[in-house]
Every structure is written in structure tokens, then in C-alpha cells.
């Protein structure tokens, strides 16, 4: 019986989806990582530095907001808008109807800009590196991966 439970546990871990409990966990970890005031600025700067390190060409998408200098006020404000969008989506993970209305709004905003799916994947990779760096430990990568896919799937549908 014990072996069976462990086996079942392993299966569950391997196929982690963004279930109700995983959503609660991501919310808590996001809350700690996002912080407030100037912490958010540092978090955003770290995130975008990783994004552009992984995908230097992505900077071209952000010409309008001075993507060539992540420390410029224009890009810092942009960075906080993106984090704000992510924050809204994560905090709505427990309210599907409103979450879908919000993702439809973000979808519309991104559609105009024709963003390659590879960039969403790059953003996810960066997020999954920077969030645990902020938390130190106690990061559930599977829950984050699955729940980020729910959000980016809606934005990039």
C-alpha cells in the first residue's frame, strides 16, 4: 500500500497540472517574490535582464519603451506594467470567469504586436529562474510551469 502511494505520488508530480491547490501555491510564492515598492523594480530588472540575455533579439520588440536600456524610466515603467499584468492574472487564478475576461484583454493587447510564441517560452524560462532566485527556496517549479502555461496560453491564443 505504501509503495502504491509513493508510486501514485510520483505520477502526480510528473504530471502536475495547474489545479486548485497548485494555484493557491503559486499565488503565495508570487506574493513573496513580487514584493512592494523598490523591490518590484529590482525584481523586474532582473527578470528582463535574463529575458534579453536568453533572447537578445527580443529587445527589438521593445524599441518603443527603450528596450535597449532596461534602466531607463520608460523601460522600468513598462517592466512594472508587465509585472502588473502578471499579478492580475495570478491573483485571478481562482476566479476563472474574470481571469478569462482579463486574458482576453491581454490577448488583444498582444495580438496587435504579433509576438512569436518562442518569446513567451523565453519569458517563462526567465520567470522560472528569477522567481526562485528571489525566494531562495520553497519554489514549486511544476506548479509554476503549469500555471504560467494557463496564463500565457490565454494571452497568446
Amino acid at each position: 500500500m505504501k509503495t502504491l502511494l509513493i508510486l501514485l505520488g510520483l505520477v502526480a508530480m510528473a504530471t502536475a497540472d495547474c489545479g486548485g491547490l497548485a494555484r493557491l501555491k503559486v499565488k503565495q510564492q508570487w506574493n513573496r517574490a513580487f514584493g512592494e515598492g523598490t523591490e518590484r523594480e529590482a525584481f523586474g530588472t532582473a527578470l528582463w535582464n535574463v529575458v534579453f540575455h536568453k533572447a537578445p533579439k527580443a529587445r527589438e520588440l521593445f524599441k518603443r519603451v527603450k528596450g535597449d536600456n532596461v534602466y531607463s524610466p520608460e523601460f522600468q515603467a513598462h517592466s512594472q506594467r508587465v509585472l502588473g499584468g502578471l499579478d492580475m492574472s495570478i491573483s485571478l487564478l481562482d476566479d476563472s470567469a474574470t481571469l478569462n475576461a482579463q486574458l482576453a484583454h491581454l490577448n488583444m493587447q498582444h495580438k496587435e504586436r504579433a509576438i512569436d510564441a518562442a518569446y513567451f517560452a523565453g519569458f517563462k524560462e526567465a520567470l522560472l529562474e528569477v522567481v526562485p532566485a528571489t525566494l531562495g527556496r520553497c519554489f514549486d517549479q511544476d506548479a509554476w510551469s503549469a500555471c504560467f502555461d494557463v496564463i500565457s496560453g490565454g494571452i497568446n491564443a
Partner: peptide, 14 residues
């Protein structure tokens, strides 16, 4: 977003 940028006036203005 704006409240959390109050301490960084240039970013707030942007």
C-alpha cells in the same frame, strides 16, 4: 503600480 512607483519619480512619470 503608480503607488509603488511614488518613490521613483522618473519611473512614475514615464
Amino acid at each position: 503600480l503608480a503607488i509603488n512607483l511614488l518613490a521613483q519619480p522618473q519611473n512614475l512619470d514615464a
